[in-house]
């Protein structure tokens, strides 16, 4: 452990890179998810098909392959992305494809009656979406968003494979130069776990805020720290 101590600042620099990539990619993923969800719900068949194609493409194959593809193949088409840009693009589009299903399901979860009321009241369509549908759909999306954020943090480790000096990449460098891989990787796992806890906690704060914005009085019901009473009774295990 002592041997690793001098490298801690170097690792913390990696934490910064990891968080930057995570946040940039999720910032890309959320609008992508909404756009794809709208495309899938569009009245036009071509739009639905295009949205479905993008979603299936990114969900169907491995993110590692997509990352390598962006890194090695895209330049052949004359598109030279920096490793960071390629990493953010692939992570964002990939996670956005997954999250679009959450967005779609949340928007769908609003009852037909609410939609019909906006029509019967002649509300302008943008107002109906912004002020009636979205405030009811957004709180439904927040807990899955928390999962997506933690997933993105874990996902971001993959960018070390295309030479980005994030936390995982730097762990590899230190492990090689010190020859004490176990300590370094153990430490890095703990750092990732701590980051995941922090992100999950931050999303719970966000959840409370969104609930307030949406006019829902109930505070966070789900999340990492809440310990719900299990519905499996103690006697199920013979006690």
């Amino acid at each position: 452990m002592g041997a690793v101590a001098p490298y801690v600042p170097f690792l913390l620099g990696g934490v910064q890179v990891t968080l930057q990539i995570t946040f940039a990619a999720i910032a890309l993923a959320v609008p992508v998810a909404f756009i794809l969800a709208f495309a899938r719900m569009s009245p036009f068949r071509a739009m639905r098909w295009a949205g479905g194609f993008v979603i299936e493409t990114f969900r169907g194959s491995s993110a590692v392959v997509q990352l390598f593809w962006a890194f090695y193949v895209l330049p052949l088409f004359g598109i030279n992305l920096s490793p960071v840009a390629a990493g953010i693009l692939v992570l964002g589009l990939n996670e956005g494809s997954y999250f679009s299903e959450v967005v779609r399901a949340s928007l769908r979860s609003i009852s037909a009656g609410q939609r019909e009321a906006t029509v019967a009241l002649h509300l302008p369509r943008f107002f109906a979406f912004r002020s009636v549908i979205l405030p009811q759909a957004l709180p439904v999306m927040i807990p899955p968003f928390g999962n997506a954020l933690v997933l993105m943090l874990k996902f971001s480790a993959l960018v070390s494979l295309v030479t980005i000096q994030d936390l995982s990449f730097r762990a590899g460098l230190i492990a090689t130069s010190l020859g004490t891989s176990g300590t370094v990787y153990g430490l890095v796992l703990c750092i990732y776990f701590a980051l995941a806890l922090m992100l999950a906690g931050a999303v719970m704060v966000l959840e409370r805020r969104v609930n307030r914005w949406a006019g829902r009085d109930d505070t966070a019901r789900s999340g990492f720290f809440t310990r719900r009473q299990s519905s499996v009774p103690p006697w199920a295990f013979g006690r």
Binding site: G113, E116, A120, A214, R216
Partner: peptide, 19 residues
């Protein structure tokens, strides 16, 4: 949207906006 503007409707299930 323009043509139906003079019409209003009250639903069986109220459909008030809950928020």
């Amino acid at each position: 949207r323009v043509a139906r503007r003079p019409v209003g409707m009250v639903f069986q299930q109220f459909n008030l906006f809950p928020h």
